[in-house]
Amino acid sequence: MHDGPWRAPHDLVWTRYPDSEDWAVFNPQSGDVHLVTASAYFLWQTIATSHDITTGKLLAALADHVQMPLEADLITAADQTLQFMDRAGLITPNI
């Protein structure tokens, strides 16, 4: 997993409807629409509003947000989500 820091493009367009916790997000750079979970949106929002946040701090913030212990399952799920968001251009390593 990339240790961070991460940064988030600010031109993404996020949409959430009242009938679901999931978010749709449009990336104008790729022209693609993605469907992501509320946790993925939380990760993006945290990255977008924090300066140079590391992966460790990001995971701690997520664990606090979802009120789960920071254990292997959560770390694995968060890692997969960050990798997906990186591939989709929703976040990018700030190197």
Partner: peptide, 10 residues
């Protein structure tokens, strides 16, 4: 059957 709007959007 209704489907979540985010899925419909996709």
């Amino acid at each position: 059957e209704p489907i979540p709007k985010a899925y419909a959007l996709m």
